[in-house]
């Protein structure tokens, strides 16, 4: 009797704790959503009345739309680059018997360790010389540097959990190396790959510091939002935030949709 009572008390405490953490996570959203629908012309909480005017303002302003599309463009190229570089690198780091490989493994985390602002200044110097300031693809390259550690860490973890006997089996059954990777290895790494791509995309889509240094006159969405706060504080930014949250939620939904089947397979194997 006593034992069950104690355990249920523990469950209740844990439940309260979890609820508190969720509230902490979701509270900002509970503020942003109402403000985005505010009828007032300034940031005020709770809003005095409700309207769609700030969403309308966003949709009617070409500079907002342009910034959004540019951010999508930059994040897409960043994801492609980070995956194209990171996946083979992860294979090298996990599979190579090269003696210094453990050290290299740590080095790939460098972009996370180095303060973003230092990285930005350094990149600014290089990009200025290459005349890449203001070029969207230049920013995508810079963002790919930041996204690379996510890709390497996630894909390495996936690869370490992968049974290499399967590649031997495939080779014995007549498969060439490219076909082994394509038909046997990568499909089973799908959850890692999807998560890595998602994180790459989001890390670029949401990135402000590097964008401030490198994007010049062609603004990304976070840069535009930042400027908007500096110039004119109106609830447009709340509406943009909500749209951004929706976009990320859709991406997250797609991630779990495409990552799931493979994920359960990997776990139960």
């Amino acid at each position: 009797m006593r034992r069950t009572r104690r355990r249920s008390a523990g469950n209740i405490v844990l439940g309260i704790f979890a609820a508190a953490v969720f509230a902490f996570l979701l509270l900002p959203l509970l503020v942003v959503f109402p403000i985005s629908l505010s009828s007032a012309a300034y940031l005020q909480f709770p809003p005095p009345g409700y309207s769609w005017q700030w969403y309308q303002r966003y949709l009617d302003d070409p500079s907002w739309i342009e910034a959004t599309l540019r951010s999508v463009q930059v994040a897409t190229l960043c994801t492609v680059l980070a995956m194209a570089l990171g996946v083979p690198l992860a294979f090298f780091l996990v599979r190579s018997r090269f003696p210094g490989v453990r050290v290299l493994d740590r080095v790939t985390a460098a972009p996370i360790i180095v303060p973003t602002i230092i990285l930005s200044i350094a990149l600014y110097g290089v990009f200025a010389r290459l005349q890449l300031i203001g070029a969207w693809y230049g920013l995508a390259v810079a963002h790919a540097v930041l996204a690379l550690p996510f890709v390497v860490i996630l894909v390495s973890a996936g690869l370490r959990g992968f049974d290499e006997a399967q590649e031997q089996a495939a080779a014995g059954l007549g498969a060439t190396w490219p076909r082994i990777i394509w038909r046997v290895t990568l499909p089973q790494l799908r959850p890692s790959l999807v998560s890595a791509a998602f994180l790459s995309f989001i890390s670029s889509f949401d990135e402000l510091v590097v964008a401030m240094f490198l994007s010049g006159a062609s603004m990304t969405l976070p840069k535009k939002m930042f400027d908007n706060i500096l110039m004119e504080i109106d609830p447009t930014i709340a509406a943009v935030s909500v749209l951004q949250i929706l976009l990320v939620s859709v991406a997250l939904g797609l991630t779990s949709l495409f990552g799931r089947g493979a994920l359960t397979t990997t776990i139960t194997r």
Binding site: D163, A165, A169, G172, G174, T176, P187, Q188
Partner: peptide
């Protein structure tokens, strides 16, 4: 792949996907 040898592995090494 050029040997045409069929092999059954200890843990079967079936492709789970």
């Amino acid at each position: 792949r050029q040997r045409d040898v069929g092999m059954v592995f200890q843990n079967y090494a079936l492709f789970p996907h």
